[in-house]
Every structure is written in structure tokens, then in C-alpha cells.
């Protein structure tokens, strides 16, 4: 497993918080997903070995929670709300814009590796619908124009990083 030293340190820190190692399964998975973006088979086996479990025990947990990703994800995770208010205010259109701009499909990694676009349920900001979360940042009133603008920002950052 290729985890950042910080992640490893946090993992070692979190395990003794629990009476039985097994209980640290969820926190460990969160830390790994935060670091790598998704939970690979290798990660499952790594966690199992770390917590003295069998891989199947960890696999059960990973598949139970839909928010653990079992596939790689783009550098940025674009979460478009599709619950009632946002849906009424054009959330689907917003989503389509993101897909088109990055030439990708829902749930997939865009060809440039920059983003993964997905629908999520209510982000608790219904008053400013449609809303989008990019990684941990909330963007409000994201109509198609604003979506295009956000895409432009992400792409600009990407080309800056490459040079």
C-alpha cells in the first residue's frame, strides 16, 4: 500500500482508541479513501492484516456503505444534488454540463483524470438550489453557466499543475 506518511501516522494513532482492533475498520477505511480516493482490493487486504481480520470481514463493510468507493476516482469529486429542490431547479442540466465539459459519464473518471461526476442526495442547501459539492467545497446556485465557469477553473488549475 502506498499511503502517505501522515495517513499511516493517523492510522496508527486511531487504532488504540478502540477496545478491539476490529472496531477501527471504518476509521481506517475513511483515512485510506481520503488519501487514495478509493478502496482497492489491496487496501482491503492491508486493513485486514493491520486489524488481524480476514479480508472478507473488511470487504463486507466496504460493500455495505455506498460511500466507500470501490473504483478509482478523478482528482476532484463533483457531487451534484438530485433531490427534489435541486432537481426542480435544474440539477440534472448542471450535471450534464459537467459531464459534457469533461467528456465523461456519471461515476467514471474523466479522460484527463481530473474529475468524477456523480449525483448525490440532498446536500441540505435546498434554498440555493441547484447545489454542487466539489470535494469538500459547496457551490450554490450552480446553473449551466456557473457549472461551465467551475469547469474552467478546474481545467486552469490542471494546466497550471502540468507546467
Amino acid at each position: 500500500m502506498n499511503l502517505k506518511p501522515e495517513t499511516l501516522a493517523r492510522i496508527d494513532e486511531v487504532i488504540p482508541h478502540y477496545a478491539s482492533k476490529r472496531s477501527a475498520t471504518l476509521p481506517l477505511l475513511h483515512l485510506i479513501q481520503e488519501d487514495v480516493g478509493w478502496i482497492s482490493k489491496e487496501a482491503i487486504e492491508w486493513v485486514a492484516a493491520k486489524l488481524e481480520l480476514q479480508p472478507i470481514n473488511v470487504y463486507e463493510v466496504v460493500t455495505f456503505y455506498p460511500m466507500f468507493r470501490q473504483k478509482p476516482i478523478g482528482r476532484r469529486h463533483i457531487k451534484v444534488c438530485r433531490t427534489l429542490s435541486c432537481a426542480l431547479m435544474g440539477g440534472y442540466k448542471t450535471c450534464e454540463t459537467f459531464e459534457k465539459e469533461f467528456d465523461t459519464k456519471m461515476g467514471e473518471v474523466s479522460p484527463d483524470g481530473e474529475v468524477t461526476v456523480e449525483f448525490v442526495e440532498c446536500l441540505a442547501s435546498c434554498g440555493t438550489a441547484p447545489v454542487v459539492m466539489i470535494d469538500d467545497e459547496l457551490h450554490e446556485n450552480v446553473d449551466s453557466a456557473k457549472a461551465k465557469h467551475l469547469c474552467g477553473q478546474i481545467k486552469a488549475e490542471a494546466s497550471q499543475r502540468k507546467t
Binding site: K41, Q54, P55, I56, N57, Y59, E60, T63, F64
Partner: peptide
């Protein structure tokens, strides 16, 4: 073990 949940729960052998 069981993977997935609810009515999609499936008995599986670890891949």
C-alpha cells in the same frame, strides 16, 4: 461473508 445490503445482500466468498 455478505456483501452489499438490503435486498441486494449477497453471500460471497472473498474474491
Amino acid at each position: 461473508g455478505f456483501i452489499d445490503r438490503g435486498s441486494y445482500s449477497t453471500l460471497t466468498c472473498y474474491p
